[in-house]
Every structure is written in C-alpha cells, then in structure tokens.
C-alpha cells in the first residue's frame, strides 16, 4: 500500500505542475518492459501506426476516441464526447481496469494491478508525448509481430458474406458489438493483423487450445473472409 500512496502523491504533484516529465512519474526503462504486454496491439515511437489498437504517440492530452482514422468503440467515442481527456490520472485508472472507466471498450485487457508497474508504464508512454516533433526511435519490442505470413496469403481478398456466415461461429463467444469481458474483442481489426493472428493459432504458435482448434480447420480463403467481415463490423 506504500506504493499506492506514493503513486498518489506523485500524481498529486504532477497535477499541480501539469507538465510532468516522464522521470517524475516512474522508471521509463522498466515501463518499456511492461509495455511488452501492450505491444501486440499498440505501437509507439517513430513510425508508429494504428494497428489493432490506436498508436500511442502523443497520448497525453489527447481526448478519448479523438485520434482520427482509428475505429474506436461506441463506448470510447461517447467517453470522448463526454469530455474524457487522457491525463495521468485518467490513464492510470484506465490501465488499472479498462472496463471500469470505459465499460464497453474494445481493449481486451484485464488491467495492470501493480501501481508501480503502472507508474513505470506511464513514464514510458510519457516519453512519447513529451515533444511530438522529437519522438525517439521505438524499442524493437514496440511492434507486435508474432508470426510471419506469406504475402500472397495476406493479399487474399476475403468474401465478407462468407465471412459473416463463418463468423456466426465466432460470435457465440466474441461479442458482435465488440465489447470484451473475459474473451477478446475481434471487431474492427486491421485485416492483416487478423489474418496474422489466425495463422499464428493455426500454426500453434499462439497457445490457446480452443483457438488453435478453430483456426486449424479454416482455409486461407476462410481466414481472409473472416478478416474482411469482422474488420468492417460496426
């Protein structure tokens, strides 16, 4: 509990100052390691682009759901309209328990419970918001690629109508409205990320036995069809 109190104190100080530097939040180097559990979906650093989640350059001070070009959940967009802005306190609360702050977020993540880990992670993120014109090169771990898929497989154009039928199996567990509780959201992923993930299950490089079984019987065309359907599902 000492940790929690010290973080609270740090937060209070930062709030008073308003322009905290990353070093006053936590250990950014340790935070870079914590970020590895985020990097499957979020990119950060030079050249970061939106992937399964939005890129996180300049996240401090950004309005919730406000980054153009990324398809946020309705719940996140509503939070932004209601005035949620990502400052240190709000980010800390969101990372601690995402659904407590934004109930139907598509971010399939249980949260970081340890206040010190969160402080370190936030210090890491803060570095990429300090000065957008001077964002450092991302660490090699910043981009999540767990499997390589042949370009001709990635290039397949999926049949969304077939994907809708095949996807009716997926939505027995993964909710069609994109909300996630205990089971990840699979809507509005970039098609390439979806295809890579499914092939990683099929090749048994990702470990979940149920998903290995589901992906195991899907053809390349069927995976492309699912990616096309869920990628566009509002």
């Amino acid at each position: 509990m000492i940790l929690r109190r010290s973080l609270g104190l740090v937060l209070a100080v930062i709030f008073a100052a308003g322009t905290a530097r990353s070093e006053s939040i936590g250990d950014a180097e340790a935070g870079a390691e914590v970020f590895e559990q985020c990097s499957g979906c979020h990119q950060i650093g030079q050249g970061a682009r939106d992937a399964i989640g939005p890129h996180l350059n300049g996240i401090f001070g950004r309005g919730a759901g406000a980054h153009e070009g990324y398809a946020y959940s309705a719940s996140m967009r509503r939070a932004g309209v209601d005035g949620l802005v990502w400052d240190l306190t709000r980010l800390d609360a969101y990372i601690a328990n995402p659904r407590a702050l934004v109930s139907k977020t598509r971010m399939s993540f249980g949260g970081v419970k340890d206040p010190q880990e969160r402080a370190d992670l936030l210090a890491h993120l803060r570095r990429f918001s300090d000065n957008p014109s001077n964002i450092p090169e991302a660490a090699p771990t910043a981009r999540g690629t767990d499997h390589s898929v042949a370009p001709e497989i990635l290039a397949l154009q999926g049949d969304p109508e077939y994907g809708e039928y095949l996807g009716s199996e997926c939505v027995s567990c993964h909710q069609a409205d994109g909300s996630a509780s205990g089971i990840p959201s699979i809507t509005q992923w970039p098609e390439d990320d979806f295809v890579v993930a499914m092939h990683a299950y099929k090749a048994k490089l990702r470990t979940h036995p149920l998903m290995q079984m589901m992906a195991g019987r899907l053809s390349n065309e069927e995976i492309a069809a699912l990616a096309a359907y869920f990628g566009a599902l509002e």
């Binding site: 939505v171 027995s172 567990c173 909710q175 069609a176 909300s179 509780s181 205990g182």
Partner: peptide, 14 residues
C-alpha cells in the same frame, strides 16, 4: 472461468 463468463455474455447476446 473468466472465459466462461465472456462466453455467457456472447451466447446470450447471440
């Protein structure tokens, strides 16, 4: 167990 709770929400919505 947590997955089963997610599944319950998914299948009842379905």
């Amino acid at each position: 167990y947590e997955e089963s709770i997610g599944w319950y929400a998914g299948i009842t919505a379905d």
